[in-house]
């Protein structure tokens, strides 16, 4: 199967870091700024950045509706930090719009302002025995998970990595480290999605 075309939302944030990390992990990543660029993606990564800024730009440039439609239809999406906030159902104590793609409530800057930003060795059982070098920057945590949400990692008792079907979300930034495990974990989700879609097509054709 051809390497998956993974779009990285490039309205604002650490886009290049994700592009490089995805390439190292074996994908064919490219930057997505417009609905036309989004159309040819097999999957989407929403990088780190400022969630208030990016939500406004998604609406202004008409990307919010197509992303919601395709991700609800099964397209894999991974949000890191800002991306997790954008994908969440809602934001605790803030009237901030989101795309509502995963049934979680997040709290923004929950671990503190920049002085509390930290590098943390994080146990993630799904990725193996060794801790993941997680980088938290003004990071959100997950305050509430819906019943279908798998909690994949916790820091100080708070959820920081979750998955619900085709949507993955992390409070931290795997794209800032050399450890490829989370990127590979997401690419495995993308491969499964492509395989299922392929089967689905055959079925309708027959």
């Amino acid at each position: 199967m051809a390497e998956p075309k993974v779009g990285v939302l490039a309205l604002q944030g650490d886009v290049d870091e994700h592009l490089r990390a995805l390439e190292r992990a074996g994908a064919a990543p490219y930057a997505v700024k417009t609905p036309a660029e989004f159309e040819r993606a097999d999957a989407l990564v929403v990088p780190g950045g400022e969630s208030t800024t990016v939500m406004k730009l998604l609406e202004r440039f008409g990307l919010d509706a197509p992303i919601v439609e395709r991700v609800r239809g099964g397209m894999p999406l991974w949000g890191t930090c800002m991306g997790m906030i954008v994908a969440a159902r809602d934001v605790a104590d803030l009237d901030q719009p989101t795309l509502d793609l995963i049934d979680i409530t997040v709290r923004r800057n929950a671990f503190g302002r920049q002085n509390q930003s930290a590098e943390v060795p994080l146990p993630i059982p799904a990725l193996g025995a060794s801790a993941f070098p997680a980088i938290f920057i003004r990071a959100p945590w997950i305050e509430r998970c819906g019943p279908a949400v798998e909690l994949l990692a916790k820091r100080d008792g708070r959820g920081v990595m979750v998955r619900e079907r085709n949507v993955l979300a992390t409070s931290f930034h795997p794209e800032l480290t050399a450890d490829q495990r989370v990127h590979r974990f997401f690419l495995a989700m993308v491969e499964r999605f492509k395989a299922e879609r392929f089967k689905g097509k055959n079925f309708t054709a027959a």
Binding site: G13, G49, A118, I137, L176
Partner: peptide
């Protein structure tokens, strides 16, 4: 265990601001 104020998290916040005003 947790390290704050590292070069990575200091430079990292600026990386999150890229493409912005």
């Amino acid at each position: 265990m947790e390290s704050t104020g590292t070069i990575t998290v200091k430079r990292g916040l600026a990386q999150m601001l890229k493409g912005g005003v």
